[in-house]
């Protein structure tokens, strides 16, 4: 092959690489919703089969488990948060979750994220966002949300009537008379109460598998 031909090949290669990288500028990287589109076929069944919606009793046990690094993420609005929220929870609106992706991705192997809404709709959207932006396998949703939690653990007999009411836009249906935040007795249920409840354990710690490499 003559030197001139090699130069042409070099030029061609450089042009192809430059055009390919220019294409990246135009196409961009996937947005969270686009990435969910790529992951949906694999992850949607987990939602449908309710593999990631955990019982309030299981969450209550996790809250007292010192071997688990529990991240309770409350995605409700500020009004509902002030009325009642779980002990140890942090309020992060859904739109602010992508900014936390590094933190969620860097959770230790014993880290568990539980997303909390008033029902499940908002928490499910938050779960999809976390799976798309942080690829965190140990993320779960509180089944039934705060409404079910309060029906289960709050004093009084509002439980069945609250849960029987129609779910509207993930609103707080349980009558909380004043803003107590996490000072409400149901924010951290008594262990004796929790022991009496039966549930199917769904939290399984999975390693966030990252392919390691190196170079020499």
């Amino acid at each position: 092959m003559t030197p001139v031909s090699i130069k042409h090949l070099h030029g061609l290669g450089a042009t192809v690489l430059l055009l390919a990288s220019a294409g990246l500028v135009w196409h961009g990287q996937p947005t969270p919703s686009e990435k969910w589109g790529f992951l949906a076929h694999e992850l949607e069944p987990r939602l449908i089969e309710r593999q990631v919606q955990i019982d309030p009793a299981e969450l209550a046990e996790l809250m007292r488990n010192n071997f688990i690094d529990l991240q309770l993420i409350d995605v409700r609005d500020e009004r509902d948060w002030n009325l009642f929220h779980l002990w140890g929870a942090q309020r992060i609106p859904t739109q602010d979750l992508p900014a936390q992706h590094k933190r969620f991705a860097a959770l230790p192997d014993n880290g568990v994220i539980v997303l909390v809404g008033n029902d499940e709709a908002r928490a499910t959207e938050a779960w999809k966002l976390i799976m798309a932006t942080a690829s965190q396998p140990n993320a779960y949703i509180l089944a039934g949300g705060i409404n079910r939690w309060l029906a289960e653990f709050a004093p009084g007999h509002h439980g069945r009537s609250v849960l029987a009411r129609e779910q509207v836009n993930d609103t707080l249906r349980y009558p909380v008379k004043m803003a107590m935040g996490s000072r409400h007795p149901a924010a951290l249920p008594d262990t004796h109460h929790v022991k009496d409840l039966s549930f199917t354990s769904k939290v399984k710690l999975q390693k966030r598998m990252v392919m390691k490499g190196g170079c020499g």
């Binding site: 961009g28 990287q29 996937p30 790529f38 942080a134 990252v210």
Partner: peptide, 10 residues
């Protein structure tokens, strides 16, 4: 990553 063949987070 752009076309969904690779999850860059992993």
């Amino acid at each position: 990553t752009a076309i969904g063949w690779l999850d860059y987070d992993y």
